[in-house]
Design a protein around this nucleic acid. Structure first.
Lengths: 144, 144
DNA sequence: ATATTATTGTAATTGATTCTCAATAAAGTT
DNA sequence: AACTTTATTGAGAATCAATTACAATAATAT
């Protein structure tokens, strides 16, 4: 299996784009992060390490990473985008606590069947899905 | 089954809030709209009818309507919220074309089982879920 | 080395949503 | 019906994430 770096470099080359230190720094940092991240967090982490990468560059790289299948957007319903790396990870969904914001991940294989069924039924070429479940975690139920 | 208006009025009263013409106008207009809508569309529709309701009021009423279970937010991934009425409608999910933006609705009853399973497994009190599937519709596949 | 042009950082801009504030008006009380 | 209390309103300012313009820089091809 290709490394994330390889995937990204091939994508860059194939598109006639350029390989820059900023892009590589951002990519590296993303793959150091476990779990989810947002633009601000990524920016601060890079800054802490002495990187001079601007937020604008982060905003500019993310669509590329999404497009080449390394990263995906996640919606936690809090006013801005979150992201997670998906390359080499099983597709999963999120269970979110409406009070404390805890995020649990779970897999739901039957959704692949659903995708196939929708493709047949409506003639769609399905690219993916997002499922979020929300509620209150055990701790927050008591606290309410 | 109570009417939407009844549900809303009871909610208002119960909360010690006030019943105002603006709120009723907005509610009425929402229930005239079939399908999905967003704040701008709702605002323009009201304006066209001669209503003086401001966008601020719309933004202020929507959380109330969501809270009392008449309306829900829908994410079409295009930078702003969409809404749909859910009172008296079966819960459904959305299949969206990434190119032309077409939205199809479908029901997926197995997700109720999933909710129960998650509740058991993680001790959550589940409040709901959102599922979006995306891809390319038949027409747009050809056009690509 | 040189030319071409993609990429960068900075700062300005956009667009959706929220907030401030003074004026208004619901609902309860006399 | 008049009075009081205070929630609600509209207008515009403020906020916040995300995008864009622009001039300087630097990555690739020749």
């Amino acid at each position: 299996m290709k490394s994330e770096t390889q995937v990204f470099r091939e994508y860059i080359r194939q598109r006639g784009l350029r390989r820059t230190p900023e892009r590589e720094q951002i990519l590296q940092e993303i793959f150091v992060i476990h779990g989810h991240f947002d633009v601000d967090e990524l920016y601060l982490r890079l800054k802490d390490k002495g990187s001079k990468v601007s937020k604008a560059s982060i905003y500019r790289v993310l669509p590329l990473l999404i497009d080449c299948g390394l990263v995906r957007e996640v919606d936690f319903n809090d006013g801005h985008w979150h992201y997670e790396h998906i390359y080499g990870h099983a597709h999963h969904s999120h269970l979110r606590c409406l009070r404390c914001g805890e995020i649990l991940e779970f897999e739901e294989p039957t959704l692949n069947l659903l995708e196939e069924q929708l493709a047949r039924e409506y003639g769609y070429r399905i690219k993916g899905h997002q499922l979020q479940v929300h509620g209150f975690c055990a701790t927050c139920q008591e606290a309410e």
